[in-house]
Design a protein around this nucleic acid. Structure first.
Length: 305
DNA sequence: AGCCGTCAAGTTTAC
DNA sequence: GTAAACTTGACGGCT
């Protein structure tokens, strides 16, 4: 089991998502930004290894305007060595990484232009994993998309689009249950049609479900991951921010809730991405809790033998 | 030097 | 019909 956090490290003064405005686009700025971002990404990964955090979500903005037609800079060849070095580091330390294209990637949109731009974004993000030399256990996670007033049609449109995706994308694409529109059950239907793994989000499941207990939901999602092709299940973990709008992520890890969640996880192998505002601070505490729970389990085992 | 409106992209929900 | 939320920093024009 690995624990990680998304995109931003708050301890280091180094950001892997530096960018600039479209209006000030130039090839030179792309080159500067990518050099900075890959350098910072490696530093963040080194920091993570030192902390025992072996799961990390890489931000979408490593290459500014990476899938935009304005960007014709040959970053794939210019930074081939740097991407390869990052990938070598990840493999050497048995880390796992993912990408989470943001809300503009909507594969089930009725607008063909939006679908095409979405596919290009997925191709861009997948190509970074290719350049790093990372296999299909490193994933691209998206949501099913919009509802457009007709759930059946929306799901079937996702399936149709999925079948047209390039193999480099489908090898890595996973869908996540969301908190308002597409539940775990909806994702399971998409999985049944095309075999796409489901990245389980416990907090979204708490917000939107059909009565499945957490332990059952985890096992349903885990069964959608093909061990050799996909690796162990990835999941997002969070909890409700107290006193805030329903669905708002907590600012910091609620340790008791996380400890209880690990009990539900049991002996299921899963890599956990903490979607929590204070990033690596909570991730480090989560690692400590995981070690405690493991130690207690070992002690409990010892006393019964 | 510091303030602060704005930033490629989509969709839903609240007002 | 328009704006906020998703999530968030930081770009960059302006004083």
């Amino acid at each position: 089991m690995r624990i990680g956090y998304p995109c931003v490290n708050e301890s280091l003064d180094c950001t892997a998502t530096s960018t600039f405005r479209l209006a000030s686009y130039s090839d030179e700025r792309v080159e500067l930004a990518v050099a900075n971002n890959l350098g910072c990404l490696l530093r963040i990964l080194q920091f993570n290894v030192a902390q025992g955090l072996l799961f990390f979500r890489i931000g979408s903005g490593i290459v500014p305007f990476g899938s935009h037609p304005v960007n014709v800079f040959p970053w794939q060849t210019r930074f081939a060595d740097e991407f390869r070095a990052v990938g070598d580091y990840i493999k050497a330390h048995h880390m796992r990484v993912s990408f989470h294209p943001d809300q503009f990637v909507v594969l089930n949109s009725p607008d063909a232009g939006i679908v095409e731009r979405s596919i290009q974004e997925l191709v861009y993000q997948g190509s970074m994993l290719d350049l790093m030399g990372l296999d299909s256990t490193h994933k691209l996670q998206i949501h099913v998309g919009g509802l457009y007033g007709d759930r059946e049609l929306a799901i079937s449109r996702f399936i149709d689009t999925y079948r047209r995706l390039p193999a480099a994308v489908t090898a890595r694409l996973v869908i996540e249950n969301d908190d308002r529109l597409f539940s775990l059950q909806d994702c399971l239907r998409v999985h049944a049609a095309v075999g796409i793994p489901i990245l389980f989000d416990n907090f979204h499941h708490e917000c939107l479900n059909h009565g499945e207990p957490m332990m059952e939901a985890l096992r349903l999602a885990a069964a959608t991951w093909h061990p050799e092709r996909d690796g162990v299940m990835m999941m997002d973990y969070s909890s409700q921010a107290l006193g805030e709008r329903k669905g708002k992520h907590t600012a910091t890890l609620e340790e008791d809730l996380f400890r209880n969640f690990l009990v539900d996880v049991g002996d299921l192998d899963v890599d956990i991405m903490l979607e929590i505002k204070d990033k690596e601070a909570s991730a480090q505490r989560a690692c400590g809790i995981l070690r405690d729970v493991g130690r207690i389990a070992i002690l409990a085992g010892a006393t019964t033998e």
